[in-house]
């Protein structure tokens, strides 16, 4: 992925800062259907951007393109990440058949963290996930919320500048969701840019600083969260927020 950086004004933000990631003319077809169509998006280098849109809008595929897991047919993703990778966490966390600490050690090895630094980093990640007292427990015996917290801190093992989260709380109860939201907020406070896909309007309103709305494989609008929820610019976004948008 080429690295290129350019100062771009971001809607609703006074200061002009270079975006951490920019998507230009991104297109992707699957089974003869355009699932991403000329997607244009610039992500500010801080805070939490929420991606919203109906099922099939292309949110998860866009996230995978941003992470470099899916090669687009057209267009490109430009990043200012340098050597630091983007990390992606899926809706259902896939954990190795090892202990909680074993999963994190494996991620630290993959991230080529020097051996002498791993123990301290492991402790930090366990603390961040609130799983310090379950380090030796088999990861697959954790609750759904704990597994998702483990998956998120595992993704942070490589110290990414950009964390992409694909509906991380969609199958969790309110308490587990609150824990995940606290973890995400703390990660963003620590300077990691977060992109969160969610269908949960309340969660989006709690977490988002800006919202990008996707429909039909295109970004229909992108702006500050307050204006998106108060006065969405597109008819599709209005219909989506009112529960009237069908694909």
């Amino acid at each position: 992925m080429p690295n290129r950086s350019r100062v771009i004004p971001f809607p609703g933000v006074e200061a002009e800062l270079p975006p951490i990631l920019r998507v230009e003319g991104l297109g992707l077809s699957r089974g003869g259907r355009r699932v991403l169509d000329e997607v244009e998006l610039s992500l500010p280098p801080y805070g939490i951007t929420v991606l919203m849109g109906p099922n099939g809008a292309g949110k998860s595929l866009l996230l995978r393109c941003m992470a470099g897991l899916v090669e687009p047919d057209r267009g490109a993703v430009f990043t200012a990440l340098g050597a630091a990778p983007a990390a992606l966490v899926f809706q259902s966390p896939v954990l190795l058949n090892r202990s909680v600490a074993g999963n994190l050690r494996h991620a630290l090895r993959l991230a080529r963290i020097p051996r002498r630094a791993r123990a301290e980093r492991l402790d930090d990640l366990l603390m961040l996930a609130g799983l310090g007292d379950q380090a030796t427990a088999p990861a697959r015996t954790l609750s759904g919320g704990e597994q998702q917290r483990l998956a998120i801190v595992r993704a942070l093992a490589a110290a990414p500048k950009l964390l992409l989260l694909d509906e991380p709380t969609s199958s969790l109860d309110p308490a587990a969701t609150a824990e995940i939201e606290r973890l995400i907020a703390r990660t963003a406070d620590d300077g990691v840019k977060v992109v969160l896909v969610t269908h949960d309007r309340a969660q989006a309103e709690r977490m988002a600083e800006d919202v990008a709305f996707l429909h039909g494989g295109q970004v229909r609008e992108h702006g500050a969260a307050r204006s998106f929820f108060g006065q969405p610019a597109s008819a599709e976004a209005r219909a989506y927020l009112e529960g009237r948008l069908f694909v």
Partner: peptide
């Protein structure tokens, strides 16, 4: 099928993916 996308998201090299899958 189960692990490949996660391992690629964790930036595992091809050799690391094979080693991880064999261990699992």
């Amino acid at each position: 099928e189960e692990f490949d996308e996660t391992l690629r998201a964790l930036r595992a090299s091809r050799g690391q993916r094979i080693a991880t899958l064999l261990w699992e």
